[in-house]
Nucleic acid binder design. Structure first.
Lengths: 228, 228
DNA sequence: ATACCGGTGATATCAGCGATAACATCGCCG
DNA sequence: CGGCGATGTTATCGCTGATATCACCGGTAT
């Protein structure tokens, strides 16, 4: 009996890995019952002994890819600065999304809103990090809202970076988004210096076209400089 | 010839409306070539005379639904407070996402990242609103970054609200997200006065030597310009 | 007026998909 | 050893998107 479940789990794992490989490399459309079965070395109907339907298989595959990523996050020990830990987690999360667009696309689909184990684990890790910040007395909003804001911002940022990367993508958008969220959920102490040079530059750049003393060519060149 | 194109557009519109209705009410899975053709009163292969493939039809359907929403946004005249206009646009956008989860799910898919006309128009409206804020001297970051941040936050917020609405959803999450973004992209007050461009130029010029992104030669040239 | 012809639509059909039923086989447990 | 549930295979279904081929209709040129 114990050997039965073991065998069952082994073939199930083989199937999931085959499906995960197809999903990661070629997208969800490539994950067909026939191809997965071929890569796993059995006939298509056998999949239905282990999974209710193809959606369950696809969820398991996406969860498998995501789980490997989540496992890597746990290893990094918490530092003495909980906010820096949060930022580190943010960056790895953004990196995962950009590196695995297909998997992220699956997790993005609202119709496919199952909370798989790895996803729940990821949320748990995030909640724990937020809790440590709250324990340090540096949280301005409820932990629940902070978690929701961070998740929303992360998903939206990854989506934006994945969507418009022909070249006009903002390489520091992820940092800017994190700073925005941090400013919103943290108490002001270590925030940004109030005298923000960026604000002055932005204001200057806005009124640039209206300056009478500059030719349009000069203004255009200047605008290009300031875009940096 | 003109009548030909007219006729073509009429049947195309009929097909798109049928597909949009199915998409809005029953989701993308219900949008099959056979059902759309039946509702539009023709045979499935006829669709391929007007659309390259089913993806193009689905895009047109989603765009049709989204276009109706965008059309409603344009009618509202701009008020005297550009930030309030931005907030109003934010709220309608969130509302659309929550009211049309299927369409939003399609627009969410990174693999389906075509920028349809209605979507481009929506971005244009947002960019215009951001520009008015910038013109009022209340923007702290570049207009491009502000637009990207707002779009990211909106998408992420809608996704979060759509994903975890069993009852633990935060009804004020959308407001909190907007406040976070507003705090991040707006100056605390209309700090830099619009009335006095000279003051802005002066402030900018003072700050010029410390800008890291400009070479000393560029800064010198710029300084010379600004001396006028 | 008539013959033509590009564009619109219908018919028939294809390959691939997810899924199920019915049959074969393997391996444990009594 | 005999039985029986679990595992896997074969055959097949209905549905999907898509294409080739033919019929027709209306404007154009002769």
């Amino acid at each position: 009996m114990a050997q039965n479940t073991q065998r069952r789990d082994i073939t199930r794992d083989r199937i999931v890995k085959a499906a995960a490989g197809l999903l990661r490399d070629q997208g969800p459309a490539a994950v067909t019952t026939r191809r997965v079965a071929q890569e796993a070395g059995l006939q298509p109907p056998a999949l239905y002994r282990l999974f209710q339907d193809k959606d369950e298989l696809l969820d398991a595959a996406a969860d498998h890819v995501f789980a490997e990523h989540v496992a890597g996050k746990q290893t990094t020990a918490p530092s003495d600065d909980p906010v820096e830990d949060l930022r580190a987690g943010w960056n790895t999360q953004i990196g995962f999304g950009l590196a695995n667009p297909y998997v992220y696309g699956l997790l993005l689909d609202p119709a496919r809103a199952r909370d798989t184990p790895a996803q729940a684990e990821g949320v748990r890790i995030l909640a724990e990090r937020v809790h440590r910040i709250a324990a340090a007395g540096r949280l301005r909003v409820s932990e629940e809202r902070a978690v929701n804001l961070i998740r929303s911002a992360g998903i939206g940022t990854v989506h934006t970076l994945l969507t418009l990367p022909p070249g006009q993508s903002d390489p520091h958008l992820a940092d800017a988004a994190f700073d925005a969220i941090a400013r919103a959920i943290l108490v002001d102490r270590p925030a940004v210096p109030t005298q923000d040079p960026a604000a002055v530059v932005a204001a200057f750049r806005t009124l640039l076209p209206e300056l009478p003393t500059l030719s349009t060519a000069e203004a255009a060149l200047l605008d290009e400089w300031l875009q940096r």
